[in-house]
Amino acid sequence: MSTATLDQTRLSLPKGLARRVLPGFLTLIAMMLILLVCGTIQPRIWSQNGLTLIMSPIVALAIASMAQMVMMSIGDIDLGIGFFVGMITTIVATLLRDTPILGLLALAGSVLAYALLGALVQLRSVPSLIATLGASFVWLGMGLFVLPVPGGMAPDWLFKYAFWKPPLSIPAPLVTMVVATAVTWFVTRRTGLGVRFRSLGSNPVALVRSGGSLVITRMLAYAVVGVLGVLAGITLTAEIGGGDVNAVPGYTLTTVAAVILGGGMFTGGRAVAWGTLAGAITLGLLTVLLTLLSLSPNLQPAVQGFIVIAVLAGRLVVERMTR
């Protein structure tokens, strides 16, 4: 029954919009389901404290996924984002705390490095995947130079953020994630810059004909990725209380999965901020779900894999039905 009504609403939407929104919408349903299952096993989740507890580790992942989403909207993939975010935490926990001006300069330098990476990719037709992979070694090394051993201390204002309790018992992590997503959505879908990013991904020839520069557009896109990476690093520092370049190497692939779950494509041209948010939360909640289910630890990775396949298979089924 419900699918029938779904059919009608889908059919009344323009096809392009349906294709863009549907995957993220289904992921949103999966996310709700996982949250419901978690909440059934552990009712303490349903409180400001409970939601804050399980959501706060996801914030950095969500913002890093936004970075990956921007990257994929121009048709590139970033295989270095995990170590980049890790490197940012080391800068935030040392330089930014002790000498804020130097810290800010270092963060700006990181963004600039990303823009230069974009220039390399464009000017030398280097595949983004391998360029960012090469860069990931650099981020790791730099992070180790700044902080050879995990440590340092988050700046005080970050600690204040970590203990922030918004009014109306809204969980703070949710606020951060929604704001970050809204800004990314606005930039990628409501500004001229976003249009240029997407046309770089889907139709670079058209971009050149309309007078845009491929190099500058790609550099700007990479800079946006860098800025989002820095933000992810700052929120991660709040979560781990210090710096650790090895904190999140797994983000590299997880963020790609989050974007795909959210409806993004490898071929570029699609910017799906809200879908990506749903994808990131779904993947983040999986850990909570697996912990609460207390499955045999050996099987945990398999369950994770099957859930990802299941969500995407479910999307295929629904897509077939709406055709």
Partner: peptide
């Protein structure tokens, strides 16, 4: 007993710990 997924990832363990704290 709870083993965090992933390759020795601090964030996964944080998520796991928070679920355990509940």
């Amino acid at each position: 007993v709870s083993n965090a997924p992933g390759e020795n990832s601090a964030t996964e363990q944080i998520a796991q710990l928070k679920a355990l704290l509940l």
